[in-house]
């Protein structure tokens, strides 16, 4: 056994480090573990009310404006709740009747104030309840789009022709390229064949397994999370494809911001998506409000100050490529 308490505590500290290493090793050897962890996180977000999931963690953050309003409101409540509890109880002879009258008047006045405060509280509670109900309805509506998209077939894989078209657009790039929503890695493979260093990310471990077995650098990660971890200006290009057709405009806007941050000033962003008009009846209805047409992608990228080129693709499903260069 160990000699003394210091040895014992050092031993426990070493075990703690070994546990972290063991968890890292398991994640690396078992890609499904990382997927499971992400799914657990998503399940908690679904189970917790809006704001609750973030609040129950150390990185709890509220929008600054909301927080500032809450601080101000609580400050006012706090100030108003300060009551001087030192009653004037020092008695003098002869003023008893006066004090009695003052007490009666005070009682009448406090009741008058209390009635008003109660009425205000009643209104405020009603208002807060109706606001909460309305927020719950809005949250429910917002979540409905994701639920409905589960009834639509997944976005098909890229084909070889699309891979070649994307590689042509990035032929001038010197440096690594990230392919968002890479699937089995056909675009990554085409880029490597064109001599461009590339890796892919996809949020499905199953989708990338074939490519990983072929030796491609494909990783399981949520697109936005993956890009957010990449240092500023460290990529020569970013390819956005497939799953971006199933995301809402506000998410896509964040994705563009992250992609622009990651690429060098001479880098390229290539968007390879099918036109919205190509969606069939059920897809058109169930995916309403998700994805953008190539023209809208071009518009968004131009508005962010990029030089944008729209070109034809030889891919079977994706007819148009949008290529943007930061300026």
């Amino acid at each position: 056994m160990l000699n003394d308490a210091t040895d014992a505590r050092e031993y426990v500290a070493r075990i703690q480090a070994e546990i972290s290493q063991e968890a890292r090793r398991r994640r690396e050897s078992d890609p499904t573990l990382a997927t499971l962890e992400r799914e657990i996180g998503q399940a908690w977000t679904r189970s917790a009310p809006s704001g609750g999931a973030a609040a129950a963690s150390s990185d709890a953050t509220a929008p600054a404006e909301v927080k500032a309003h809450a601080e101000h409101l609580l400050g006012c409540v706090d100030d108003l709740s300060l009551i001087d509890v030192d009653a004037p109880d020092g008695a003098r002879r002869g003023v008893r009747q006066v004090k009695s009258a003052v007490r009666r008047l005070t009682r009448w006045y406090l009741r008058y104030l209390a009635d008003q405060v109660n009425a205000f509280n009643h209104f405020l509670v009603g208002f807060l309840r109706s606001t909460e109900q309305r927020l719950a309805r809005l949250e429910d509506d917002a979540g409905a789009a994701e639920r409905l998209s589960a009834f639509v077939d997944p976005v098909p894989e890229a084909d070889h022709a699309l891979g070649r078209s994307v590689a042509d657009q990035l032929s001038q790039c010197s440096g690594p390229v990230a392919v968002v929503s890479c699937g089995s890695g056909l675009i990554v493979s085409a880029l490597l064949q064109a001599g461009i260093a590339a890796h892919g990310v996809d949020d499905s471990a199953d989708a990338i397994s074939d490519g990983v077995n072929e030796g491609l650098d494909l990783r399981v990660a949520a697109p936005l999370e993956h890009l957010s971890r990449i240092a500023d200006g460290s990529l020569a290009g970013v390819v956005l494809t497939r799953s971006v057709e199933r995301r809402r405009p506000v998410e896509l806007s964040s994705l563009i911001d992250e992609a622009l941050r990651c690429v060098t000033p001479s880098g390229r962003i290539v968007v390879a998506v099918a036109d919205l008009s190509a969606r069939s009846g059920p897809e058109a209805e169930l995916l309403r409000g998700m994805g953008l047409s190539p023209q809208t992608w071009a518009h968004l990228l131009r508005r962010r100050g990029c030089a944008v080129e729209v070109s034809a693709s030889t891919g079977s499903r994706v007819a148009t490529l949008v290529t943007a260069r930061p300026q």
Binding site: I15, Q16, I19, L36
Partner: peptide, 21 residues
């Protein structure tokens, strides 16, 4: 105070590894 295993990461894989160990 050093009399237990203290983790600086509580992601599920790390906690599960700690429990198993």
């Amino acid at each position: 105070a050093g009399a237990g295993v203290v983790l600086d990461d509580k992601s599920p894989a790390v906690v599960a590894s700690a429990v198993e160990r």
